[in-house]
Design a binder for these strands. Structure first.
Lengths: 238, 238
DNA sequence: ACGAGCCTCCCCATTTTGGGGGAGGCTTTT
DNA sequence: AAAAGCCTCCCCCAAAATGGGGAGGCTCGT
């Protein structure tokens, strides 16, 4: 197995990538360089449906989507809260849905060993970068630190390119005034209007004006929608 | 200037880091290795107040917090939506608040050139990794791609350690049933209860049961709080 | 000087939500 | 077999929110 990843090659392919197929080709090149069974970029959550740039057989990808394995996949759950690479072997696969996932993967000819790293972006965006092999011992334990570095860099570059491809032209990023931000933030934190107004040392009437104003700026249908939208845009945070 | 960053040294310091001071020492070691004016890890948004592990003088840090520069800092805003490193020189500093920030920084003896990379985590977490120097031309243009790689890796490792230090013991991660998730997601997207119930092909009474149930599971005070909380935990996404 | 935006405050009628209650059928796990 | 959770449906009443309207003072940018 090669001991050095030519990220220059990956970056070159990514810089020319225009669509998901181009990303898939870049990921396939990575698999060949790593000399592993599969390399996977799985965009779990973004503005639209989940999608992936990967080397898995179509049969397995179709089964994964059809059975909605994303909602019970221990890898997806584990990487959601851990910032470091996760060895699949270390996860709990005892639950029946997880065993079904494994069975289905094996039936599609895949190895059950792998390593994944979660990547996050704005507006709750969440993606997974995985390396999969059929060898009996975990990839993570076989990887040197240098290889973890390469995994992190590969994940970052692929996700960056994916975000760039998805980005809507930011014609006009909505912003809120400080008081509007305060008003929505306090509501998001669970305070009622009366309590929030008191917290800000203003009247409920005034508080309401800020909420209405923010709602109009965000083009929201109601207060809840305004709060959710503001959170999604990263304008407020709990 | 050295052409190779010894990330092994950074990782060693980080693996032993127990608090923010340890992180600051690791960051200071990085500054010495890079041979630059300052290196900064700025946790802009997480569960608590903003904080940083950095080499800036206390005078400047105090001024930054006191003037609430975070809310107008073009670097903070730019890195929020860009997944790749941002050269400060390329940003718009013409607005008065931004000029005040620059003036204050210069008065504190800082250079105005730098490069920053945004890092994201769960629950809307957002941090910045920056390298600052007083040289007249932008660091970004002087950095080779190898240096960008090191910047990305350094940002990742520091943020990972920071997250590990902050992580509350996950005694019980709240989850929602699929229907509860659907109900909150549709409300977050701006549908009214009647419309959302129709979308799910259930009655409004039933829809309401899911909302109430989700609200109880999340320990939320009202529906808006439940939606905001679910988004914050990454349970639903727009 | 003027316009835009922010911050502040008030009113009424209608609609929606929250809090409480009730119920049954199905699947999964232990 | 039993318990727990999910999915489905219905009711009432009080409180809160929404949708519409009104207003003035201050600061900043052009």
């Amino acid at each position: 197995m090669q001991t050095e990843l030519r990220l220059g090659e990956l970056c070159e392919r990514l810089s020319e990538a225009q669509d998901h197929d181009d990303l898939a080709r870049a990921v396939a090149g990575l698999r060949d360089t790593y000399d592993v069974e599969h390399v996977v970029y799985h965009c779990v959550r973004s503005g639209g449906e989940q999608w992936g740039a990967l080397t898995y057989p179509k049969e397995w990808v179709d089964a994964y989507v059809k059975e909605d394995f994303k909602s019970i996949d221990p890898v997806v759950a584990a990487c959601f809260s851990r910032p470091t690479p996760v060895d699949w072997k270390a996860l709990d696969w005892s639950a029946r849905p997880a065993r079904e996932l494994l069975g289905s993967a094996t039936a599609s000819g895949l190895g059950s060993q792998g390593c994944s790293l979660g990547v996050r972006g704005p507006s709750g965006r969440y993606a997974l970068f995985s390396v999969n092999d059929r060898m009996s011992d975990g990839l993570r334990s076989r990887f040197t630190d240098a290889r973890v570095d390469e995994m992190i860099l590969a994940a970052h570059y692929i996700d960056s390119r994916a975000q760039e491809m998805e980005a809507e032209p930011v014609a006009k990023l909505r912003t809120l005034s400080p008081r509007e931000t305060d008003a929505l933030t306090l509501l998001a934190k669970g305070l009622g209007r009366a309590q929030a107004a008191e917290r800000l040392a203003i009247s409920e009437h005034t508080f309401r004006v800020y909420v209405e104003s923010a709602r109009n700026k965000l083009g929201a249908r109601n207060t809840l929608h305004a709060v959710a939208h503001a959170m999604s845009l990263g304008l407020i945070c709990l």
